[in-house]
Design a binder for these strands. Structure first.
Length: 902
RNA sequence: AGGCUCGUAGCUCAGUUGGUUAGAGCGCCACCUUGACACGGUGGAGGUCUGGGGUUCGAGUCCCCACGAGCCUACCA
């Protein structure tokens, strides 16, 4: 029965149905007892801060492509989905939402606020899951995880307790980055640096007991309120005599020591540095070395505090202005110069970060970093691309301790308890009955929560049942096979998972890391929703279809380079989807012609027939079929190689070329008459091969374009009774299909047809008029090939006749094309031909050929080349030269004839 | 300041160990509404690979320098 399907591919009509089907049927549920090698991958958990953006789409598309590809190749496959509570980011979102409703989150109180965040988590998380299902991700939904869930949170706390017991987590007073807007500590990674134009203020500090001044240069004059020393270099002749004396701190009228310290660079500024241990990392270190007092002059929201004297209550930048004015007025300001400085900005809110001495929880990184470096050096974890590997080493070798406490409410609360009277610390998951040191029963829990990356660091194993090492999932799927994520979180996340995984489980968390490109806007920025530069994936799906978006992303995802997505590119991918649809439409719509032949469709469905096609029936295989399956098998090979090394673009492009260029443009066009033929035997053979090739093409495409392929595949006879193409086999490379001769021969035919079409177009022959053509070649084998394929050539070049001979064709009464191997002529009334254009074309071609020939002749005349170049290159060059010379001669002769005629 | 990446057709980008007239998509030009597809078909124009130097028989491909673009890391007040 002929089947009619829609004329154009309408993804909206199809995708929701399959998305729902895949979930409902639990098609991708992993089974620890299933056979096959393991392929396991855990999702980089998206933040529950909203919905998925285009960057996630790339991430998820790549993961899903590899997952589906492995599954089809018989792996025991797990793709584990989940989400991240994303402490600071999510808290910010909810704080902002509340503010929009006029609610101050602090007034709500911690408990109520956290409740609100949970509500938001349900909403945002729900949206994310819907999107993931919508784009067809083949996850095991039964194993979905959340970093802050009742299941995972205890694991996080257990790890904290363990690392504390091991001395890797400690509480200490150190310099940290403080965001006055988020009002929390930040790690170095959460601070972005930006060059800004600033000033260097030169301030005169009077030296006590003398009438001298010591001039210090600073970029942040407001911090002088907390100065507790001035430092100079020990060997600086200018200041040597002042060391040991006191300076009088202007505005504050406090005496501070003048010290010598190696940290001072004599060349910079004035060579004298004010020391503010509470507000500068260097000064903090100096203060420690020298036992200087630390005076914190700022509040949590970066206003001057009571230690700042008359400036108390002023915002830090207002205070700066006022202080500079006052210094100037009182004669302490020597001068102001311009100075470019790199400012630290909060990654989340872009507020200028304040360095601040603060008591926080830290994680020791050096002992964790060393094994993490070694394991990658040994290649037990592969990092692709290579250059990211170097970045990884560099970062880990210079790593500093990680401040892990955050002054937030949304997150894993630190399991540390302080006793009321003395502040002794007891670390314990449950609230202890009494203080471990003094026995006090009055205990309060640390109000802080853990950095969100602390829990993400455990993700590959906490999601699989660890710390229970006998958990079936952990045993079966850990270490995971692969991690795919963006290179922007290599340090935030990837490195931490490796460190924690090695330390806690004793095994690598994954065997390979593929760091993919970022999706950028046309102007090269990271796409950003807040800047309005992001493309909305939901809208894109609506407009182009998920398959098109997936294909588009894959086709652009060359390792190591960022992606600039455009509507044009997406439209191209959609056109490809439509092309596939229409190729199928052609098949389905002519099914009746096949069935009329008396053979049932089921007969075509047998897998062993497909595996053998086109050689199943025995006997001579038509060139076109031999050629198509040769192309198919090499495409399969390319796709497999490409996916194995994360070259998604190569996989996508090669399957595109095969489907559109080979299958549609040449194969279908060539076999059309046979498919529609009344000769049932021929028709059956043609259909069998068509089904086999189309089936393989759909399977090849399925990992990239799951919806379209699922939809179409179910209409093929061989799909009868099967649940999903996703559970079927990926096409295999078959030695039987390799066919060098067919490839060579058909390439020749393609060349002949293209040349004939070219003559017709260039000579402006009437496209509707069939014309007679002559072919000649001195090579009997070539003549045989042409003879055997005359029918196809006649049709595809719109010829009325194609005569084949061995004698060289001479210029006369027609249009001619020559190559070294053959001549072609179309008989056509000479007077209607545009000879001028033909002469111009010939001249150009001759020019190009002459250059090529000259270059080769020169090379072949070079003794050093002949003696040093490999034999293969030399013989190849000679052969090409011979051919080009023959061709050149023909062209020159023809040009002469034409010029004579004109 | 250090490190990395990139600079190939009008645009966006491929080009895996250096090798035989450099590829794709989009755009452009011409022709074609042929019964799968105008989200289509056929043919075509268009780059000498940012510039300079070097290594090599041979370089878009390796090295150095310059220019341009971007990214990452960094406690010079």
């Amino acid at each position: 029965m002929a089947r009619e399907i829609a004329k154009a591919y309408e993804p909206q009509q199809i995708e929701p149905r399959w998305a729902e089907f895949w979930v409902r049927e639990e098609l991708f549920k992993a089974d620890v007892n299933a056979p096959g090698p393991v392929f396991s991958i855990v999702i980089p958990p998206p933040n529950v801060t909203g919905s998925l953006h285009i960057g996630h789409m790339l991430d998820h598309t790549e993961i899903d492509i590899l997952t589906r590809w492995h599954r089809m190749r018989g792996f025991n496959t797990l793709y584990l989905p989940g989400m991240d509570h994303a402490g600071i980011s999510t808290q910010r979102v909810v704080v902002r939402q509340l503010a929009e409703q006029g609610i101050d989150y602090r007034k709500l109180g911690r408990e109520e606020f956290v409740k609100r965040v949970w509500q938001w988590k349900e909403e945002s998380g729900g949206a994310i899951l819907r999107q993931m299902k919508q784009i067809g991700e083949s996850c095991d939904w039964s194993r979905e995880k959340f970093t802050f869930s009742a299941e995972l949170s205890p694991v996080v706390l257990q790890v904290f307790v363990r690392l504390h017991k091991e001395g890797l987590i400690y509480r200490g007073h150190y310099m940290v980055n403080w965001c006055p807007s988020c009002q929390t500590t930040l790690s170095d990674l959460e601070v972005n640096h930006e060059e800004r134009q600033g000033h260097l203020w030169h301030i005169k500090y009077p030296v006590s007991g003398t009438d001298e001044f010591l001039v210090v240069a600073t970029t942040r004059p407001e911090t002088m309120l907390g100065d507790t020393a001035v430092a100079v270099h020990a060997e600086d002749e200018r200041y040597r005599h002042l060391v040991g004396k006191k300076a009088l701190l202007p505005l504050m009228n406090r005496e501070i020591p003048i010290i010598a310290d190696e940290m001072v660079d004599r060349e910079f500024g004035t060579g004298a540095v004010k020391i503010t241990p509470a507000h500068d990392p260097n000064d903090f270190e100096a203060g420690r070395r020298r036992g200087l007092e630390e005076i914190d002059v700022m509040t949590d929201d970066a206003h001057i505090n009571a230690n700042g004297g008359v400036y108390a209550g002023l915002d830090r930048f207002v205070a700066r202005k006022k202080i500079v004015e006052d210094l100037r007025a009182q004669g302490f300001l020597e001068k102001t110069t311009d100075h470019t400085l790199s400012l630290g900005l909060c990654e989340r809110c872009k507020t200028i970060v304040e360095p601040r001495a603060s008591t926080q929880w830290f994680c020791k990184m050096k002992p964790l970093a060393e094994p993490a470096i070694e394991i990658v050096e040994r290649g037990e974890i592969r990092i692709v691309p290579d250059n990211r590997r170097e970045e990884y080493f560099h970062w880990l070798r210079n790593i500093r301790d990680w401040p892990i406490s955050r002054q937030l409410w949304w997150g894993h609360r630190i399991p540390a308890w302080y006793c009321k009277p003395d502040g002794h610390i007891t670390v314990s998951i449950e609230k202890p009955a009494k203080c471990g040191e003094c026995g006090s029963a009055e205990l309060v829990q640390d109000p802080d929560v853990l950095d969100t990356w602390f829990s993400s660091a455990l993700w590959p194993f906490s999601t699989l049942g660890w710390p229970n090492e006998n958990a079936p999932d952990f045993k079966k799927y850990y270490p995971t096979s692969l991690l795919i994520t963006g290179y922007d979180i290599l340090f935030f996340w990837v490195a931490k998972m490796i460190m924690m995984g090695l330390h806690l489980t004793g095994k690598v968390p994954f065997r390979a890391v593929y760091l993919h490109s970022l999706v950028r806007t046309a102007s090269g920025e990271k796409m950003s929703k807040s800047k309005g530069t992001g493309l909305d994936p939901v809208a894109l799906n609506q407009q182009y279809g998920t398959d098109a978006m997936r294909f588009c992303l894959a086709s652009m995802a060359a390792p190591g380079t960022d992606i600039v997505l455009s509507n044009d590119r997406l439209a191209g991918a959609r056109n490809f989807a439509n092309k596939i649809w229409n190729a199928a439409r052609f098949l389905f719509m002519n099914l009746d012609k096949f069935e009329r032949g008396g053979t049932s469709l089921e007969e075509l469905a047998a897998p062993e027939v497909r595996a053998q096609a086109p050689y199943a029936a025995g006997g001579a295989v038509p060139l076109i079929d031999g050629w198509l399956f040769a192309r198919l098998t090499s495409t399969i090979e390319t796709v497999n190689d490409a996916l194995a090394s994360y070259r998604f673009h190569e996989a996508a492009q090669s399957v595109y070329q095969f489907f559109w260029g080979d299958f549609c443009d040449w194969y279908i066009e060539w076999v059309k008459p046979e498919l529609l033929s009344a000769d049932s035997e021929r028709a059956v053979a043609a259909w069998r091969n068509l089904f086999a090739a189309f089936d393989a093409a759909l399977r090849l495409l399925h990992p990239i374009m799951p919806f379209l392929t699922e939809e179409l595949w179910h209409q093929l006879p061989q799909a009868a009774g099967a649940k999903s193409i996703a559970l079927g086999a990926f096409p295999e490379v078959r030695a039987k299909w390799k066919n060098e001769a067919a490839r060579r021969e058909f390439a020749l035919i393609q060349e002949v047809i293209a040349a004939l079409r070219n003559i017709r177009a260039e000579m402006k022959m009437d496209p509707k008029k069939k014309v007679a053509a002559e072919f000649s070649s001195g090579d009997a084998e070539i003549r045989r090939v042409m003879e055997a394929n005359r029918e196809g050539i006649l049709r595809l070049a719109a010829l009325s006749d194609f005569s084949i001979g061995s004698a060289r064709l001479e210029q006369a009464g027609g249009a001619l094309r020559s190559t070294a191997e053959f001549d072609l002529r179309i008989a056509y009334a000479v007077e209607t031909l545009d000879l001028g254009a033909e002469v111009a074309r010939l001249r150009k071609e001759i020019e190009g050929l002459e250059k090529a020939v000259a270059a080769k002749e020169q090379q072949l005349g070079d003794e050093t080349f002949l003696s040093r170049a490999p034999e293969k290159i030399v013989t190849g060059l000679k052969a090409t030269l011979a051919q080009q010379n023959v061709e050149l001669k023909k062209l020159v002769e023809r040009l002469a004839q034409l010029e004579k005629a004109a």
